[in-house]
């Protein structure tokens, strides 16, 4: 997904002199081509996330479209106030493209995990929050949002799903399964790969989001006659869905504890019940409950 990010930005920069790359000492080799071609618009500023955001806001104030790119927990949780005040309150928007969330850096442990970023950023007025799940979504959504003057968060993953989501449009959910079921699964981002695999033989509806804010309340509301199960490897989507009135919603995903093991992304997903097998059991159990009138 980072390679797609680079390719899309390179393509846009060919026609747009206002694109400036600000790296926090990540993806430096990947963006070597950009540096070579546009040396006065490429800055590896170092490991100083607060300042990366403030500088991005300052560039934005003078008409540039900056991309601040570094590791998710550090650029969001550590720099939350800079995003809130310098970008959102001042209306000096810009693009923040993170990597590593939620558990892409599983082997690095809990310090490098990031699963609150979507939830906290969606609370900021004027913020756009995007969790692309595939390379195609990265390309379409960056092109549509990068220069609109808003503060926009792109949460990039090194583990995209390979599902061809139809009609990708900012702020619009995609209904991937509509089986007239009493249970609707809602999910977002790369975990769709596991969720779709777990759902495909089950009699459930499936709604997919790449945009967390603004949330597609209209599509959510169209399933309010069903029980909704949000499955997500982060906070943020569940809370956004719950804001739509008159729903019956439950959540399967993040536990209220640190995931303090190491290893690989699949290992961490399995630990918290987000591997295909666990998801299948969870959804089947929910479906059984719904059918027996136990859920609600």
């Amino acid at each position: 997904m980072r390679k797609q990010f680079k390719n899309t930005v390179m393509d846009l920069a060919a026609d747009d002199d206002n694109i400036v790359m600000i790296l926090g000492d990540v993806s430096v080799y990947l963006f070597g081509e950009f540096k070579e071609k546009y040396p006065d618009r490429f800055y590896n500023m170092g490991i100083c996330e607060n300042t990366l955001i403030s500088v991005g806001a300052g560039l934005s104030s003078q008409g540039f479209s900056p991309f601040v790119h570094t590791i998710a927990p550090f650029v969001t949780e550590r720099s939350y106030e800079q995003i809130k005040l310098d970008m959102c309150y001042n209306q000096f928007g810009g693009n923040i493209a993170s990597c590593g969330a939620s558990f892409d850096y599983a082997w690095d442990g809990a310090t490098h995990h990031s699963y609150t970023d979507l939830a906290i950023l969606r609370l900021l007025p004027g913020m756009e929050v995007i969790q692309p799940g595939s390379n195609k979504e990265v390309d379409v959504l960056i092109r549509s949002q990068y220069d609109n003057g808003n503060a926009t968060y792109f949460r990039l993953s090194d583990h995209p799903h390979n599902i061809d989501v139809p009609d990708i449009e900012f702020g619009k959910a995609a209904v991937l399964q509509d089986r007239d079921s009493n249970l609707t699964v809602m999910t977002a981002g790369p975990i769709l790969g596991n969720v779709l695999e777990a759902c495909k033989e089950l009699d459930v509806n499936l709604v997919y989001f790449h945009t967390i804010k603004p949330i597609d309340a209209e599509t959510i509301a169209s399933f309010k006659h069903t029980n909704i199960l949000v499955i997500h490897d982060a906070f943020g989507l569940y809370e956004a869905v719950c804001e739509v009135p008159e729903l019956s919603v439950s959540f399967h995903g993040m536990p209220d504890r640190f995931c303090d093991r190491y290893g690989t992304l699949p290992g961490t997903r399995k630990e918290i019940g987000l591997d295909v097998e666990s998801l299948h059991k969870t959804i089947q159990k929910k479906l059984d409950g719904v059918c027996c009138g136990l859920s609600g």
Binding site: N50, T51, I53, V55, A57, G58, L59, S61, Q62, D86
Partner: peptide, 17 residues
């Protein structure tokens, strides 16, 4: 602690231009 960071971004913008 926010003003200098913003100022750095603005000064950089003028340099680029």
């Amino acid at each position: 602690g926010h003003g200098i960071g913003l100022a750095v971004g603005m000064a950089l913008a003028f340099k680029i231009r």
